[in-house]
């Protein structure tokens, strides 16, 4: 049967930083072709095709974030595969090879992670699930 693409609306202007991306103007209607869990979604908008940040989109229909999983406060163990330096105060600065707990996998690609007593955001693309099990 025909493939029905979901329509999203741009909530703000966005200027692309590479040829793979497309510019957005607030109010643009986009059809989403692929939702990558790293927070970049592949879309088409009229004749343009490319990647846009999911954080700048809202669904045209349906409840907000219907697909987004609930927080899992127990946490899942992930390893950082790339260092990231926080640019905002609610983000984490971590080196590659650190073990953290993921407690909320957000569609915008910024996951809430916990390390010790602290929580903060970290880019999901720099995380890899470990084979480790949490101690009881």
């Amino acid at each position: 049967g025909p493939i029905i693409l979901e329509t999203y609306r741009a909530i703000s202007d966005y200027s692309k930083n590479s040829k793979r991306e497309v510019d957005l103007s607030a109010g643009d209607m986009l059809e989403i072709i692929e939702k990558n869990p790293n927070g970049w979604w592949f879309c088409q908008c009229e004749s343009r095709r490319g990647w846009v940040p999911a954080s700048y989109l809202e669904p045209l229909e349906g409840p907000d974030e219907a697909e987004e999983p609930e927080p899992n406060y127990e946490g899942e163990l992930y390893e950082t595969i790339k260092a990231y330096t926080a640019t905002q105060e609610d983000e984490f600065t971590l080196q590659a090879g650190e073990i953290i707990e993921v407690i909320h996998k957000l569609l915008d690609g910024w996951w809430v992670v916990r390390k010790g007593e602290e929580t903060g955001y970290y880019p999901s693309m720099f995380l890899c699930k470990t084979g480790l099990r949490k101690e009881a």
């Binding site: 590479s18 999911a54 954080s55 915008d108 910024w110």
Partner: peptide, 22 residues
């Protein structure tokens, strides 16, 4: 290739539209 997503983290939501989740 355009089929591959950008290799850098996507931008955070615009500050005025960000939901507080932590």
């Amino acid at each position: 290739s355009i089929k591959e997503p950008p290799q850098n983290p996507p931008p955070r939501p615009p500050a005025d539209l960000r939901r507080k989740r932590l």
